[in-house]
Every structure is written in structure tokens, then in C-alpha cells.
Design a protein around this nucleic acid. Sequence first.
DNA 1: TACAACGATGTTAGCGCTAACATGATAGCG
DNA 2: CGCTATCATGTTAGCGCTAACATCGTTGTA
Lengths: 342, 342
Amino acid sequence: MSNDAHNSRRRRSTEQPTLKQVADAAGVSAITASRALNRPDQVNELTRARVLEAVERLGYVPNLVAGSLASARSRFIAVIVPSLANSVFIEVIQGLQETFEAQGYQILLGNTEYDLEREYQLIRTFLGWSCSALVTAGLRHNEACRTLLANCDKPIMEVMELGEARDLNVGLDHTEAGRCMARHLLERGHRQTLFIGARLAGDYRAGMRYEGHREIFEQAGLTAPLLELERGGLDAGAAGLERALAEHPDIGAIHFANDDLATGALLHAQRLGLAVPQRIAIAGFNGLPIGQHVTPRLTTIRSPRHAMGELAATAVIRRLEGQRVARRQHDVGFELLVGDST
Amino acid sequence: MSNDAHNSRRRRSTEQPTLKQVADAAGVSAITASRALNRPDQVNELTRARVLEAVERLGYVPNLVAGSLASARSRFIAVIVPSLANSVFIEVIQGLQETFEAQGYQILLGNTEYDLEREYQLIRTFLGWSCSALVTAGLRHNEACRTLLANCDKPIMEVMELGEARDLNVGLDHTEAGRCMARHLLERGHRQTLFIGARLAGDYRAGMRYEGHREIFEQAGLTAPLLELERGGLDAGAAGLERALAEHPDIGAIHFANDDLATGALLHAQRLGLAVPQRIAIAGFNGLPIGQHVTPRLTTIRSPRHAMGELAATAVIRRLEGQRVARRQHDVGFELLVGDST
DNA sequence: TACAACGATGTTAGCGCTAACATGATAGCG
DNA sequence: CGCTATCATGTTAGCGCTAACATCGTTGTA
């Protein structure tokens, strides 16, 4: 005995009401109910009111999966970053999220852990979710990933750095940032300097800053040695300072790849009783708040990371809405914050 | 003239190959191809090899939207946090993400900005995506949200704090943490103390810590005034210190709601030439690395946030796989880190 | 008055995949 | 040898929604 019209092969799992039920309750067809919810201007105001009332009464929650399948569009934006441990990416994500969510897009966040193969897998997954657009941190991808991106007609936004982007690009010139800090150190009279970074294979943008740094010092006829650490963070910065003093006793300034390292070193110098910048000058990158609170204030470079996220999202949204994007490439620039540590 | 069998109402948008095409290329039916990809043990090894070869050759990317609709299951886990600006949530998210992604689940991240109405909207959206489970930070939700959660048969995990959870719960007792620090301050001989927090309506867990703090001091016959700031962060901590000294000149110790505020205050005290802890003792909460790098080291409470995420994810996964979850409620505890600032 | 133009709504046919059931071949066993 | 159990694969019928086309009344216009 079937208690239903045709229970031959039913498999509705949840008892959630469907759009059809809402439509029946409102006395309209399913498509009208759909339009009432998604294209309000295409239905009569009274009809819409009845549909909304039925939605409310039945506690209808639209099945977005079905909607995406039918329309071949989801309102997902894939966002792929190499790390969540680094606050830099968090700030960009925040800018992206605020802007996208305000327009009704949902972010799908992927974390590659600096692994390009994982990036490929993530992009595959996200494409499988018919995401509307892709935002990735960085311009470097592996072969498979480049193929996937090339064969995909969705907007692709590459953020953080500037360069030969596939499609849209919002970022800053890291090589130039490295040059900028190097020039500052030179101006301050530092001749014996060291660049300290961590895991530069992954954080290749730090490597680019080192290249800029080296360029300037070599132009001045000076060497610019590099010290690469196994890990990042405050502890690593402190350890890096120790190693620097041991391996390069005559060093006068250290250009750190980021503020975490630099702050760790600066606070450690305090503990060691080393005068900063007299005995050793310290510079960072990122312009994190902590750098402006330590004494002496850290010399660093600040980039508009939140704005970078907003600008990137805005450009993607314009593209998705079929509008022209004014600039495919946008340099957000950076700002040298001269503190008292150099 | 149709160049296709029946182009009456075609609307395939992308030219992405479908599972059917893969199946044809491999000489099997669609369902076999599906099984080859999703239930490898249910198909013959050779058949599977042929399917995988076809997948590779055609560059097939599974349409996860269609799969989810058909199976009424997605591999999404909704994760809802009140803020991304606070590194505390980031660490929990990292723990969640690592664990979930390792099991093939994708995180859908929502940010409520401490707004319970936004939380409701996010949960609606995520349910619309047929997420497999929901992880939310905190036990407080608004009426609509509670209804939604009550009528939803998916695993629900509430993290960060312990209490009357709807389903699963992993967290720590914030009231007890507040008591713990208060006892420490009492032991150190501090009688005139002040609790400083920011935006406690949103960060109600800080409010719970204050309640614990007050309880202990009132039991000792002492008052425990509260100073609430408009904003958080290092700057706010510095400003809070100034206000505390102005409004409570006889104060000997400040219990800050978190390490950001405490560190800001501690570094500002340095600049002001105030001896910490002799003139003013400072305590925080969270156990952030920076607190262990400043001089004097910050007294604080560390909670295992990364582990909290891992444990939460593990429990949810067990539930999803139909296994029994040993403990519906799990207290991850906390640890008093006695520094030199108290 | 006839006809186009438009607005509001409905009908039909999928989107690409998988659950449920069906089938057929092979193995195991008394 | 007939029976059931098991494995590998196929057929059918949706999942819940929306695109595309169709319909029907109402207006405006020559």
C-alpha cells in the first residue's frame, strides 16, 4: 500500500519543503515562485507578496544546489591562498569577503599550504562547484593548473603581486618594495646588510623583495648576503638575529622578509641589550600594527591589503555583471614607514 | 537543420565533458563511470583503469553540483565564526580545515561580524547548499537561528565555549578561565584590579571571563570594576591603560580580555616608563606568541585552539561516517602561563 | 479595427549526476 | 544439478530548480 501517489522510486531525503510546494501554497506555478524570489521585478507585486508569505509560512529554504545545476551558475567565488597562518592573507580575504558577500556571493576558501599540486586539486574541486570566478594569491602555478585556468572561461583574478597575469591582476611590485627598503638602508648609511627570509621557495614574493634589495646594493658595489630560515614567526626572527650576529659579526643592518621575523628579532635584541639601530638596524615588511608599538618603532613597508581584496572583488563583480573592467592590472602600491629601528 | 540529434531546447553552457562522455569513451555506462570515481571498490580494476584513462584524456572535471543534487549530500562543512580579524578564530579554522580537507570535505566559511542576524542568513545559505554539517563558534544564537538548527538533522558542532549545546560541543570554560587568572592575581597580592575588555556584547566570552574574575574578587571581599572599550587591538590596549590610570589611579593590576589589548598596554607602559609589574601588573588571555616575546613576558592563559578545531572536526567526521561519538561535549581546558608581567 | 508590443504567467524539458532496482555472469555448496 | 550468494554492470527515474519557449490578456498605435 502506498501512502503516496507514486512511491516507486522516491528518494527525497529531507522533508524540507520545495519550491513546488511553495508555489502550490501560493497558487502559482513553480517558475513564478522562482521568479518571485530571484527576479522580483518580473512578477506582479501582489503575486510576489503571496509567494513570500508562503515561503515564510512553510519555512522554505531554497535548494541552491538545484538552482546552480539548472542555471549552470553558482554564486561561489573560489579564493585560494597559500596559508592562513599569515595575517597578510587574512586581511586580503577580509576585503574580498566583505565585498563579495555584500553582492550575494559566497566565498569558497582554499588553502594550498604553499603546495602548487594542492592548488591544482583545489581549483579542480572549485571548478566542479561551478564557481563564478577564481581568485588566487600569486601568479605562479604548476603546468596542470595553468592548463585548467587557460581552458576556463570564468574571470580569474590573481592578487598580491603584479606581473603577467592570465586575466585580472591586483597587487604590488615586490621587487620594487625590496629596492625601496634597500635604498632607505643605504641612505641611512648601512653598508653591511643581510637579508633574512624564511622558506623562500614557498614565499617566493619575499624572494622577489630580496632580488630588489640585492640589485640596489650591488649597484652600490656592495654585497647583499641572504640568510634563509627554516621557519617563520617571532621565534625564528629571534633565532635569525643570533645566527646573523654569529655568521656575519660585522653586519650593521638586517632586512627581514616580514614584520614577524623583524619584530621577533627586535624584541630579542632588546633582551640581549643590543642597541637598535646603533649596533644593529632592523627593517621588516608588511606594516603590521605590532611593529608600530614596539620601541624603537619598526621601519617597514605597508601595503593596502584590505583594499587589495576590495579592489579585486570589485573588479571581478564588474566582470561578472558584464561591465567593462577599467584596468585589468591594478598596482595598489606600498608605503615606506620609517620607524626608529633603522 | 539541426547539426545535433535534438537541439530543440539545448542549454549546455560550457563545453566541459560530462560523465556520460567519459563513460562512452571508456565503453561503459554512466553509472559505472560514476562508481569508478566515487566507489572504486565496486568496479573491476580494469574497468576502473579504462575510466580513469578516459577522465585523464578528456580532462573531465566532475560536476559536484549535479552530484550533490542527485545524492542530496554535499561534502561541504559550514563553518561560521564571528570575525576573521581575531587570530583566535583563524587558528580554530586551521585545525578544522586541515582535518576536514584530509577527509575530502570542503569548508564553507562564513563571517558573522558578531551579528546574530547575519549568522541566521549564513546558516540559511549554507543549508541551501546541503552542507553535511555545521560548525559554529559559540552557543548563542537568535530565535530564528535556533529554530533552523533544531529542524535540521545534520551534525551541529558548537566550538569555543562549553555549555548547553544543541548537539556536539568542543570548547573551554571561560568563566573558569576568568577565575583562574583572578586567583593568580590575588595570589600575587593584587587587591585593586580592573578588568578591561572591548565590545563585550559581541565578545560575550570575554564577558564570561569577567564574571569569573569578579566572582573571585568579590569572594575575597574586593570590588572588580570593569572598563569596556569601543575597539580592540594594540592601540586600544594602550588607550585602555591610559584611561585606567586616569580613572582608577590606585589600580595595581589590569586583567585584559585578550593578549592584543594586554600587549598594547604593556608596550605602552614601557614607553611611559611605568614599571611592569611593580607599578602596574598586566595579564592577558589567549597565549599569543607575541606575549612571550615582550619584556616582561606576559602572564596569560593559553587554550589549545588548533587542537580544538581538530577535535571538533574529528567528532563531526565520526558522526558523518555513522560512528558513535565518544563525548558529545569535550573540554579542551586551558593553561595559565605565568610570565613576568604580574 | 487590426496588429504589434509588452507584461505576467505557464508548460516543457532538461542541468549532470546518482539511488534504487534489475540483470546476468560466476562461484560455492550440499 | 539446482539453489543461493556474490560481484560487476546496466536501466530507469528522478534530485529541485531554471532556461527557453509559449500563451494570454491588455495597451498603444497607425
